[in-house]
Amino acid sequence: MTVSPDPSGITRMLADVTAALGSLQAPAADTPPAEHVPIEGAGAALDGAIVATAAMPGRVTSLVFRPTVMRMDSATLAEETMTAVNAALADLQARAAGAGRPSFEALSGQLREIQDSASRQFSAFTEALADAQQRIAERGGR
Rank of each mutant, 00 (worst) to 15 (best):
V3Y: 09
V3G: 04
S4V: 11
P7F: 04
S8K: 04
S8V: 04
T11M: 06
L14A: 03
A15R: 03
A19F: 02
L21I: 06
A26W: 00
A29E: 15
T31N: 08
A34L: 13
A34N: 07
V37H: 12
I39E: 11
I39K: 10
I39V: 15
E40T: 15
A42M: 03
A44T: 11
A45K: 06
A45W: 02
L46P: 06
G48L: 06
G48I: 04
A49R: 10
I50Q: 08
I50M: 13
I50A: 10
I50E: 02
A54R: 08
M56I: 09
P57G: 06
V60T: 04
T61D: 04
S62Q: 09
V64L: 14
F65E: 00
P67T: 13
T68A: 14
D73V: 05
A75R: 09
A78L: 06
E80R: 15
E80Y: 12
T81H: 03
A88S: 14
A88G: 03
A90G: 01
D91A: 11
D91Y: 08
L92H: 01
G98W: 09
G98E: 13
G98K: 06
R101D: 08
S103Q: 07
F104L: 15
E105N: 07
L107M: 13
L111Q: 09
E113C: 01
E113D: 15
E113K: 10
I114H: 03
S117I: 00
F122T: 02
S123R: 11
F125M: 11
E127W: 01
A130W: 01
A130H: 05
D131Q: 07
A132K: 12
Q133H: 13
I136E: 01
E138H: 12
R139F: 06
G141M: 10
G141I: 09
G141H: 09
